[in-house]
Design a binder for these strands. Structure first.
Lengths: 128, 128
DNA sequence: CTCTATGCAAAAACTTTGCAGGGAT
DNA sequence: ATCCCTGCAAAGTTTTTGCATAGAG
C-alpha cells in the first residue's frame, strides 16, 4: 500500500508522522482505539489531533464510536459494518453485502453494539 | 409515564432535576444531544454529569454516539436501531423487527450513519 | 525557496471530585 | 432524622490554538 501517494493525493504532505499513523492503522487487523493510537505514535499531541482531523476530513480514515466514549479508527476502505462487543470492547469488521439498503437513505456505515460469542460463553477474559 | 416510580425503582431519589431530565427526554420525539440536554436543563453541570451517569448505569436512559463526537440520549425502551444523518445531524429511531439477528452474537443496539432522504434531495437546510 | 507540518507551551473546553447545606423519604 | 442530592469551587483531563522552527515539495 502506497501511503505516500494516498497522502499526497489528498493535498497533504507525506511526513513521517502521517506515514506512521496510516501504517499503524494498516497493520492492525481491527480498528484501533484513540488512546492506543495516541500512545503508539510518538508525535506530539497537537500534531496527533491535527493529523487525525485532517485525515478524517479528507476521508482517508474513518472513526467509529462505541457505546461508551471510546473512539476507534481504521483506514477508509469499502463500506462495511462494525460490531463492538460491550464486554471485551473488541471491534470487528463485518463484511456484508445485502445490508446496505434502507428506503431512500444513503447508508455510510453501520455500528452494532452487543456481546460477542466468546464473551457470551465465558464471562472471563475481558480485554481492556 | 410515571417517572417518579421509575427513578425510585432504581434506588434513586426522585428529585426535580432528575424528573426534568427524564421529562425532557420523554417529550422529545428523537434522541437529544448532550449539548442540548445540558443547555435545556438548569441543573448544575456537576449534577448533570452525575445524573446522566447514574441513569445510564441503571439502564434508565441510553446514549448513542454519532460519527463525530456528538452524543445523543433517549429513554431506554424497546431495542431499536438509530439512523444518524451525517448532513443534518438528525437522529431517527428505526423500529425494526427482523434486524436483530447475527450469528451467535447478542445485539444490543445498532447505529446507522448516512444521509437522510431529505438531505439527499435538497442540499440546503442543514441543522446544526 | 515556499509553504505546510511539527513541537512546545499556553489557553480553552470538558469532566470529575470534595465538601457543606438542602431536600427526599 | 437520616442519608442522598445539589451547587459551588477547585482540580483533572482532553483538545485546541499561537507561534517559531524544521521539513517536504
Amino acid at each position: 500500500m502506497n501511503f505516500e501517494k494516498v497522502i499526497k493525493s489528498n493535498g497533504l504532505k507525506a511526513t513521517r508522522s502521517r506515514l506512521h499513523l496510516l501504517e499503524l492503522l494498516h497493520d492492525s487487523s481491527h480498528p484501533v482505539s484513540y488512546e492506543e493510537l495516541k500512545e503508539q505514535l510518538q508525535m506530539d499531541k497537537a500534531t496527533f489531533y491535527r493529523n487525525v482531523a485532517a485525515f478524517e476530513s479528507e476521508g482517508v480514515i474513518k472513526s467509529i464510536e462505541s457505546h461508551d466514549k471510546r473512539r476507534y479508527f481504521e483506514l477508509a476502505t469499502t463500506p462495511h459494518a462494525h460490531f463492538i462487543c460491550l464486554t471485551c470492547n473488541r471491534v470487528e469488521c463485518i463484511e456484508s453485502t445485502g445490508m446496505f439498503l434502507l428506503r431512500g437513505y444513503e447508508i455510510e456505515s453501520i455500528t452494532i453494539n452487543g456481546r460477542c460469542a466468546q464473551c457470551l460463553n465465558q464471562t472471563t477474559g475481558v480485554h481492556s
